[in-house]
Structure formats: C-alpha cells, structure tokens
Design a protein around this nucleic acid. Sequence first.
DNA 1: GTCTATATGTTGATAGAC
DNA 2: GTCTATCAACATATAGAC
Lengths: 221, 221
Amino acid sequence: MSEKSRTEAHSRRDKILDAAEALFAERGYDGVTLRQIAALAAVDVALTNYHFGTKKDLFTTVFHRRAAILNKVRDEALTACLNTKVPAMLEDIVEAYLRPLGEIQASADKGWKHYLSLVAWVNNSTEWGREFMTDNFNPFVSKFIDALKTTLPNADEQALYWGYHYMSGALTLTFADTRRLDTLSGGKASSSDITVGYKHMIPFIAAGFRAICDDPDNSNS
Amino acid sequence: MSEKSRTEAHSRRDKILDAAEALFAERGYDGVTLRQIAALAAVDVALTNYHFGTKKDLFTTVFHRRAAILNKVRDEALTACLNTKVPAMLEDIVEAYLRPLGEIQASADKGWKHYLSLVAWVNNSTEWGREFMTDNFNPFVSKFIDALKTTLPNADEQALYWGYHYMSGALTLTFADTRRLDTLSGGKASSSDITVGYKHMIPFIAAGFRAICDDPDNSNS
DNA sequence: GTCTATATGTTGATAGAC
DNA sequence: GTCTATCAACATATAGAC
C-alpha cells in the first residue's frame, strides 16, 4: 500500500468518525442514519461498514476514541492538585475535576465539543449510560470522591455521592450546550459563554458539597 | 355513541398516551416506533394515527398532557412560599421550586415518573428543548428567578442565571433516574432513593446560589 | 372506533466489480 | 479501499371494510 493511499484511507476513516461524533451528539444514536453520517463525511455509505462494522460498532469506536485521553488529562489534573497541598482544599479538588473539561469545551476544537455533548447525551440515557459511562469513567470518578473524603472527613457517604450526582447533572447540561439560557435570560447570560459557565460552577458546587457534607462543628472553617 | 364505547375509546386513547410516554422517556423520540407503542398499549397501530395524527403530533400531545398541571402545582407552591414571609428565605424558594417535583417523583404514580424522565430527555436535547421547554416552562422559571432576586438583591444577574442552569442540570439528571449511583457507590447511595435525592438537593443548591450570588458583605448571613 | 391491507419510503447491511 | 447495486426488514401513514 502506498503512503498516499494509506493517508487517504486514514483520512476517510477519521472523517467518518468526526461526522458520526457530531451527529450522534446532536441527535442521539437512533436519530442519525449511516447515510447522513456518510454524507457529512463526504464518503460512500459502504465505507462505514468496511471500516467499523455495524452502526453500534461505529458508535462504540466514536465513544472510546477520546475517552482514554480524557481520563489521562483529568487524572493528571487531580493528581497534581492532591500533590500540592495535603489535605487539598475542597475548591481545589472541584476545580481539578471541572477545569480540564472547561478548557476543552472553551477551546476552538469542534471535535472535542461534539464529544462532550455526546457524553452529555449518554450520561442522561439509562440504557446507553449503563453501557458506556460506567466502564469508561467510574474509576476516575471514584478517585475524585476519595479525594473529597480527605477534605470532608466527616461527610456522610450517601450525601457525598448525591453531591457528585448534582455536580454531574450541572456539568452534563453545560456539555449539552442547549443555548436556552440566552432566551430565558433575555441575553443577560448565554449557554455558549463557557468560560463564565465554568467560572461560577466551581464555587457553586464546592459550596453545595460543603453544605451537605461538612460536619456542623466546622461548617464555617 | 354508547357510554360503554365512549369509555372504551377514551381508555384506548389514554393507553396509547401512557405507552408513548413511557417509551419516549426511556429511548427518546427516534428510539421508539409506533408499532412498539401500539404493542405496549395493546391496541392496533392504525389507532395511533386515528387519535393523534402523525408520530410527532402524538409526541406533542404526550408532552402537553401533563405540562399544564405541572405548572399549576409548582406555581401554587411558589406563590404560597412568597406569601408566608417577606422577603422569603433562599432555602424556602429553592424548596418551593424542587419539592413538588420530588413529591411527584417519589409517589407511586408510574405515569408521572415517566413524564419527568421525558422532560429530562427533552431538556438535554438542543433541538427538542428549543421547541418544548421554552414555551411550556420558561414563564414559571422566570417567576422563580424573580423570587430569587428578592432574597439575593445584590446578585449579578449572569451568575443567577447560571445558578439556575446548574440546578436545572442537577434536577434533570435526578429525573432521568439512571440507577448509576448505585453501581458507583457500591450500594451506599441509590439513584432511585428519590426522597434522599431531593432532601440533599435543596441545601446543596441553596448554598451554591449563595456562594455565587450573595454580596460579599453578607456572605455568612 | 377499530381493524385489515397496503402504499411508499427508508433503514442497516453486504456481495461483488474495480 | 472504494464504489455500484441490491436486499430484506422495517418504518410511517392511510384507504376502505366492518
């Protein structure tokens, strides 16, 4: 195989993945046809089957493509945070969790934006979440919750997990980028103003955790 | 038309709505076929068209069926809260917003549970949310945000709207009832333990609002 | 109101030529 | 690797008998 054809094939393969990522994120698995994906990628429909097998296989490939690198980036941020001060501040841990995602979403990279939007869709789906969220992201989430325990040693564990649930929901809706905050606020806030969205999310979530997880004795510490 | 046939027809009509509600909530609009809806309702496929028109029309009917009553219940709760004390406490306003939903979701009514799950799906979808969330729920949300302004008079409006966004995301993920908290926590918390989910949500969200909307001068008030 | 039968289109998938 | 051609299955929708 020549260098040229190898490169072109790889490029078409990637174009299918990019198109599938964008469309799955926008309309969900069932809302998208292989023909629409092929059209957006500007390749023949049969190529989706040649490169990835079934539609479900294609979805799996799309989801896994960025999951590993996402875990790596976030793991490094959390580890760095935990190494700078012991015990780490609650705000710092929450920031370590959220900031890498905010930077990705605020960046110019369309592909990553689509991927986060896809994660939002998966996270809110009972059946897709069970298959894709648990295996890919639970290990890192557990690490995050362990970190929270070090700074909230007296926390009721049930409250801690529900706090994570609220944060996950807030984050996920931010991923979804619905643009509905614009209409609601009459222009005073914008769903796509990601930098502002993450700037307020960190103190909001940290305060929430403290309110339900902190021991009454040191609630104003 | 006899009483009996009237009742039966109405019953079949309702069975289609109930089935559509349950399936749309579980798999989204495109993930469900009219045949599956008819099968779950135990009626003929052609009846969906006779009673509701197109598939999209059926979805619209399902969504509107409970929207009005939901708005009424929530409006009463918020109004009652605002009338008991002036200015109302932040926690009371958030509770007025959340508690009616918690009571509905914690009740034994399967239909309402499915409906809230459907709202979760719509809220996280850019294209469906634009069409169905804005018209149905924005007026009440604006009333809620106005109430927040009375108790957080110095709040930056942009922060206030983002706070609402975080609350909406947390609430929505709770609607979705993904059952994934169970796996993540190793049984220490359960997504379907709705009473606990709402009990912690109120102080969590209230503290979050205070952290980003309160004037620094009275941040520990 | 309900069902049978069917029109009409689209879907995912693949066999086979190049 | 890529494209043409085609398949069986399934979708929504409706006309017409009862």
